[in-house]
Computed example of a mutant assay.
Amino acid sequence: MKLRPVILFVCLLTIVCSCKEEAIPKPKAQIRLEYPEGKNVPLETDDFKFEYNEFARPDINKNNAFTLEYPEMKGAIFLSYKKVEGNIDKLIIDAKKLSYEHAIKADNIVEQPYINPDKKVYGALFEVQGNAASQSQFFVTDSTEHFLTGSVYFYAKPNYDSILPAAAYLQNDMRRIIETLEWK
């Protein structure tokens, strides 16, 4: 009988002492990816010239296709040049079609027109949001002779949250290409 008050006291003491603030688990740490701002380096072909990031490695083949490799990001900007031969409408439709083919996996596609009448460069930049294969595409033209398209691809399975910093970096480099582009 004497044990009952002791057991009751221990139980009450345990309940009172256990009523502390509830422990909340800490969130998992995430890597913060930052990439250095590169200097502009010129690239010149027979048909056009532009500036690109010094951290990219250009690879020019004979079929008017170019690759700017970013080995640290395991990504690349693929560029393709075509002469306009009365087929400007078809080239623009094909370029837009390529961008909107990613709509199946994309959460959103933002089309940003680009117009620079001083350099005769007209086109659009497409930002693809979501787990699509390519995060950005563009096309530019002078409407009479030249047509250039570009796409960003990564050598990894698309996971938008993981590649977002690298995709934004390459998209800025893509804008630099468009803004510094000059036709010959």
Rank of each mutant, 00 (worst) to 15 (best):
R57Y: 00
V16L: 15
N61R: 12
L181Q: 02
F139A: 03
H146R: 05
A156F: 01
L8E: 09
I178C: 11
E101D: 10
D161N: 08
L98I: 13
K82H: 08
E34I: 09
K83E: 10
T149L: 01
F126L: 08
N172T: 02
A166F: 00
K97F: 09
S80R: 12
A106D: 04
K20N: 12
Y153R: 15
A56S: 07
K97H: 10
V140F: 03
N172L: 03
A132H: 12
I77L: 15
F9G: 13
L164Q: 05
F147Y: 03
Q30S: 10
C17H: 09
S99A: 15
L98A: 15
E85S: 14
Y81H: 06
I163M: 06
D59Y: 03
L181T: 07
I7V: 15
K105A: 07
K119W: 00
L181E: 04
E69T: 07
W183P: 01
D59R: 12
L125M: 13
V128L: 10
E85G: 11
P36M: 15
V128F: 04
P71D: 06
D173N: 11
I92A: 12
E111Y: 08
L3G: 09
P27A: 14
L170H: 02
T149Q: 06
F138S: 08
N131G: 07
K39A: 12
E182G: 05
K39D: 10
Y153V: 04
F66I: 12
K39I: 12
K96C: 07
E182M: 06
N108F: 06
I15E: 02
A65N: 10
A23N: 08
I177A: 11
K26C: 03
F154H: 06
V128S: 04
Y169C: 01
C11N: 03
P117F: 06
D89G: 07
K96Y: 05
V110T: 14
F154V: 08
F138D: 02
T67G: 13
L170I: 03
K39V: 07
T149S: 05
I31T: 15
Y160L: 00
V152T: 09
I7T: 06
E21Q: 09
E182C: 09
R32L: 08
F9N: 11
